[in-house]
Nucleic acid binder design. Sequence first.
DNA 1: TGTTAATTGTACTAACTAGTTCAATTGGTC
DNA 2: GACCAATTGAACTAGTTAGTACAATTAACA
Lengths: 243, 243
Amino acid sequence: MVHFPSFALGDRPATGSFEMEEMAQTKPRRADNGRKASSWTQDPEGVRRDILAVARAEFVENGLSGARVDEIAAKTSTSKRMIYYYFGDKEGLYRAVLEEMYARIRNFERSLDLAALPPREAIATLAGFTFDYHADNPDFVRLVMVENIHHARHLEDSAKIGELNLSAIDMIREVYERGLREGLFREGLDPIDIHLTISALSFYNVSNRATIRQVFGHDMGAPDARERRRASTIDTVLRMLSR
Amino acid sequence: MVHFPSFALGDRPATGSFEMEEMAQTKPRRADNGRKASSWTQDPEGVRRDILAVARAEFVENGLSGARVDEIAAKTSTSKRMIYYYFGDKEGLYRAVLEEMYARIRNFERSLDLAALPPREAIATLAGFTFDYHADNPDFVRLVMVENIHHARHLEDSAKIGELNLSAIDMIREVYERGLREGLFREGLDPIDIHLTISALSFYNVSNRATIRQVFGHDMGAPDARERRRASTIDTVLRMLSR
DNA sequence: TGTTAATTGTACTAACTAGTTCAATTGGTC
DNA sequence: GACCAATTGAACTAGTTAGTACAATTAACA
């Protein structure tokens, strides 16, 4: 469970991502001396990251149609002009946010080394980490929801994303077959089915947190509820695989 | 400016059984004879249902912010004027759609009689029906996604929805305790946890169908994939409960 | 037969919104 | 020092969008 502290970047609800790709950027990039900017640092990457971070928050909060370019611009330390300069249009910005988000998942998956663990521990670790990743990154979950509402057509456009998650499936397959050879797991399971089960159990608590709270009065974000659900998820996945 | 007729906010009858409830209403309600309507049938319930059906499709397809009132009006057999006459504003319309959707779920849950079945069969039946309900009603799933994007604040406003799903929990509790007494299930499980597991496994395939297809090339809507996933879901839930 | 709810239809408005134009200045690099 | 990319900023536009005003006619019910 790897939550990094959020360093009080001021505006963002922290989503402690396991990588630290984005902490450098939200510093004030120019001396805001009002009328005529007499001096500023040239930092295209910084500007891009700044815009992307703000845009992500807005898209995650309001969806693609609900997000407002002017609002994003206002929350940025740069201007609307630069958004169009770098990202072309609103959809281009959204796509960039989406791609960045998926790039992180890839990093997450790569960071797991299950080959070193015995099969049952490997699966438990995978399930636990997946659960934590979702719980720690509601932004990711909500963005995937938004993209599904739009029938994943931006993911389709983006294309470059393809085979990313196939690595996840391959990892599961490797562990599963190892477990089979050692007589620990039962036969006839599909790695994709295992993956879907882990994902579903990790995703739902986060994606449907609001309606669950409304209907059952349970806040799945609360530490104890989350911890219990985490244990249940790992247990359920292990039982699914056991003989 | 609230010109609601008295029944606009209240006691809507739940529009029939949860299966194909809505085919009767989309008949042409008036003879569209052009210039001046010389004759039309007075049918407020029909008009309401017509608007609701169209609105649901639009909200489900485009979300709350993405849906357009003019578009809804155009697809209706009545006019924008009537939408505001009956539902006040866009949010009121959305809320009505949401309430109708939840009323159906209640009917669905009521239609299940698990008490007559032995515990394991009861759970399998519940899981199977829940899975089927989600798979057969992607509109429901998508609307719940939309509502979660909006932090369920319309569900909150609506209020009347409350204890609805508590009946579902009670049903599970009854079966679970019966299974405990008969020595079939293991101890220490929380009925809500069981419910969440069933829901998650039923919801995810539908809610994330687009991204799953995009990333894995698998269409969970295809009959064979769906059937395999259904079996897996039931199996997983039973294993979760078994000693 | 009179009252009220249901219905029709169009044009309008005020606010909003994605995207552009114009007109510059500054920073880094060779 | 020349050149290009980075940056600034504000006003503008063309289209959209939720919601309203106006002005009527018809159905149902008692």
